[in-house]
């Protein structure tokens, strides 16, 4: 077990597992943001494990996850828009999750690039890192936009539940796709 494998395992244990816990419990707003963080951290762990096992082919799942993870988060934002709009805007701590994702991407992709021979392999790592950072940005912007679109009069203590009443209208009105 070399340093890369140990780092990947530690990232899984102390990064992806808490993010998964946050995605499995709590309010919908936190779940959506945490699901995005979980996919980002798992992709970074896969990159570290690929380097640790010395198998560059194992980087491909990370690349696919970098594309599909934000797509899944956007899916949740789109289909749970009424629940997101029924609550208040995203608190500062959830918006800071994006910065945490950026920091994790930099901390993992930087050393990996330094350890790889210059050439197309480094470019591939940079592409995966850029996709991860960009996807995290897009997904969290969509989540905060959906959460702040309906944070007006029918706030958290409104008379209606999340699935019925006027709070569900804005999400329903835009469901034309």
């Amino acid at each position: 077990m070399n340093g890369w494998t140990a780092a990947g395992t530690a990232l899984l244990l102390f990064g992806a597992a808490p993010a998964g816990w946050a995605a499995a419990t709590g309010p919908v707003r936190r779940r959506v943001v945490a699901q995005n963080s979980a996919t980002t951290l798992v992709a970074l762990a896969v990159l570290l494990l690929a380097q640790g096992f010395g198998r560059p082919a194992y980087q491909d799942p990370a690349l696919v996850l970098a594309v599909l993870g934000p797509a899944g988060t956007l899916l949740y934002v789109r289909l749970l828009a009424d629940k997101l709009a029924a609550g208040p805007a995203l608190p500062r701590s959830l918006r800071a999750a994006t910065l945490l994702n950026y920091a994790a991407v930099l901390l993992v992709v930087g050393p990996l690039c330094a350890a790889t021979d210059p050439g197309r392999a480094v470019l591939k790592l940079l592409v995966i890192g850029a996709l991860l950072a960009l996807g995290s940005r897009v997904a969290n912007r969509a989540a905060s936009a959906a959460a702040s679109s309906g944070g007006g009069p029918g706030g958290p203590g409104g008379p209606f539940g999340p699935g019925e009443g006027p709070g569900a209208r804005p999400g329903e009105g835009t469901s034309d796709v």
């Binding site: 560059p56 082919a57 690349l63 197309r120 470019l123 591939k124 592409v127």
Partner: peptide, 10 residues
Amino acid sequence: VLWIVLISSV
């Protein structure tokens, strides 16, 4: 360019 970067052997 993306294709050429991502494949293993050119």
